[in-house]
Amino acid sequence: MKSIITEPMIPKPFRIHRKLKETHDTYTIELESTNGANGFPFSAGQFNMLYVFGVGEVPISISGDPSMPKMLKHTTRSVGIVTKAILKLRSGDVLGVRGPFGSHWPVNEAVGNDVVIVSGGIGLAPLRPVLYSFISQRDKYGKIILLYGARTPEDLLYKKELEQWRGRFDLEVKVIVDSASGNWRGNVGVVTTLIPRIQFDPLHTVSMICGPEVMMRYTLKELQNCGIKNENIFVSMERNMKCGICLCGHCQLGPKFVCKDGPVFCYDHIKELFGKREI
């Protein structure tokens, strides 16, 4: 009998099918199973542990379409030893994958409601699967609004898809950058300033936020000012995930474990922990 403890600790080999450059330091890698397995089912918001053999392992959110599990997609930024090593890999190279781990965005729970998605920087990556899910079942939701903040126009992820989403009549997409020069004709400022400019029914709105924690803190404040209830706000937290199965304790957030209880949390369940300096 297979051990339920050890199996999730064994990386499965996946081959890099394609590497797409998103920005100067961020790539999306498309992975296929080396053993021809049919797919890799996951829910929007979950993450995998990606293992570069001989270098190390990192938790990276899945950024692909949950309805197309055959091709696993991860968007990663070159910031540490492992992510730098990932981005040095080429098509055909193999890396190890463990997962999917963690909780997911409340895609089904949001049915019948307006949805406000607020993302910052690379925080759009874990939210892209949500957008795919919403678009594929568009008639089940009220308004769908995406607010996306980035550092500069050059740092925007998924530029082509953003253009496509902006072109749809049934999606409201607002993009803002912290600073810009030259030909940028879009918004400049912080993503929180977009919130008062959108219209939604606060009593029937589900909001999903992903980005740097300080950005989420100010976003929460704005959403609460608009009247969205804490139980309808969901955030994706980032901590030092190692085992992915709630054994090692590296990702502990007070009494919660981000790898298992999260990374997606209902804000109401962690409001006492959110922004607490000691944790």
């Binding site: 330091d25 930024r77 910031v79 910052g120 920087g121 690379i122 903040g149 980035a150 550092r151 740092d155 912290d178 600073s179 400022g189 912080v190 929180t192 980005g211 740097p212 300080v214 950005m215 100010y218």
Partner: peptide, 9 residues
């Protein structure tokens, strides 16, 4: 918030 450069490395 802009000065914090929250999206930077």
């Amino acid at each position: 918030l802009q000065l914090l450069d929250v999206y930077g490395v």
